[in-house]
């Protein structure tokens, strides 16, 4: 969401060291840094520079195009797997730009030795998620790399969608607009982290990975005052909120006590010393809405099974400082920033 121009002025220093580190893939400040210093200078154009979830392409009809790669480990985790994630992630990136998914291109990179059964399970999951989202896998590609050159299976999905009449853009956000989150945060990231790092821990945590296009379609159809949508994936709610404040130049105040977090998610994050606000979601959206449309928006979200816990969590203020402030449960106040990179547990 940070534009190339924004980044150049942000004072963020060039990527640490001369090699790519895991932190560059964390969806935080280092990912922004890599895009700004390495990718955008070489590939810049009007559509790409917007850095929205999908590019809106000019043409006879406005088209939305998006692409994403999935390298999650473990391949299966409570609540989903890499296949469901690959479909939902791309469907949601189209949907938050107001586009109706038309088709998905699927690229599989398999590692030599992958069990056929695992592949079949993941493909079944892809089919089920696509059917849930009412979209087809219309083309694809498969490659196999040697043992040790990959990690089971990597998936890339590209999605094309028909852009609707809605102009959803952060530039339209103004003071007084409200921020809504469609449900509990951090469920996906914590479920995957626990499954990967502490498989021995029994937990009720489940990823929230789900296609949100039907919910978003209803929201946009019923509520005229929706200004902007975003799915808080890597970088979490903090990443989206801090980006929105920076990009609009407005002061965004979030109320911690309104932000829904499941107790089991909160405790897992607390145990690992990680802030739930920094953790990825795969079945939630953040909605910026005009103050007069807030109730309508909540009604529309709550009517969908993926939006039953929707809450108003913040408001854009008049100060032009571009800061996101969190009013804490205790009544204190602090700045909310985009996370750095890889989420690491604390020592003590």
């Amino acid at each position: 969401m940070i534009s190339a121009n924004n980044l150049a002025n942000s004072g963020i220093t060039p990527a640490t060291g001369q090699r790519i580190s895991l932190a560059h893939g964390g969806g935080g400040q280092l990912t922004d840094d890599l895009l700004a210093s390495c990718v955008l200078p070489r590939l810049a154009n009007r559509a790409l520079n917007e850095l929205l979830d999908s590019a809106l392409l000019p043409g006879v009809e406005r088209l939305a195009l998006t692409i994403d790669s999935y390298v999650v480990q473990p391949l299966k985790f409570p609540g989903g797997d890499i296949g469901r994630l690959a479909v939902c992630g791309t469907v949601n990136d189209l949907a938050v730009c107001g586009a109706r998914p038309l088709g998905i291109a699927l690229s599989l990179i398999l590692t030599e030795g992958l069990e056929r059964r695992t592949l079949e399970d993941i493909l079944d999951s892809i089919a089920a998620a696509a059917s849930e989202a009412n979209v087809c896998i219309v083309t694809g590609d498969t490659k196999v790399v040697g043992r040790g050159q990959g990690d089971g299976i990597y998936i890339t999905t590209a999605g094309v969608g028909a852009a609707g009449p809605h102009k959803l853009h952060p530039d339209a956000v103004r003071a007084g607009d409200m921020l809504i989150v469609s449900g509990t945060i951090a469920d996906h990231g914590m479920a995957v982290m626990l499954a990967r790092e502490m498989p021995q821990v029994q937990s009720a945590l489940k990823s929230d990975v789900a296609p949100l296009n039907h919910m978003i379609e209803q929201l946009l159809r019923q509520v005229p005052g929706v200004v902007f949508l975003r799915d808080p994936t890597r970088g979490g709610l903090a990443g989206v909120a801090a980006d929105l404040a920076a990009r609009t130049g407005l002061h965004l105040t979030l109320l911690e006590e309104n932000i829904p977090v499941r107790p089991e998610t909160w405790h897992a994050a607390d145990m690992l010393g990680i802030d739930p606000l920094d953790i990825a979601n795969e079945g939630k959206i953040v909605v910026v809405v005009r103050p007069g449309s807030v109730d309508q928006a909540l009604d529309a979200l709550c009517a969908d099974k993926h939006g039953t816990d929707a809450r108003i969590i913040g408001i854009f203020g008049k100060q032009n400082d571009g800061i996101c402030e969190l009013r804490t449960c205790m009544g204190g106040s602090r700045i909310l920033q985009k996370p750095y990179g890889e989420q690491l547990p604390r020592i003590c």
């Binding site: 640490t16 060291g17 090699r19 502490m198």
Partner: peptide, 29 residues
């Protein structure tokens, strides 16, 4: 190592940089 030590900068680089350069550094819980 525990995660926090990964980024600490020594006189020459950090464990994170060593890992990117091919060192076998694992974060354990």
């Amino acid at each position: 190592t525990y995660g926090d030590m990964l980024r600490v900068v020594g006189s020459e680089g950090s464990l994170e940089q060593c890992r990117a350069e091919g060192a076998d550094v694992r974060v354990v819980y």
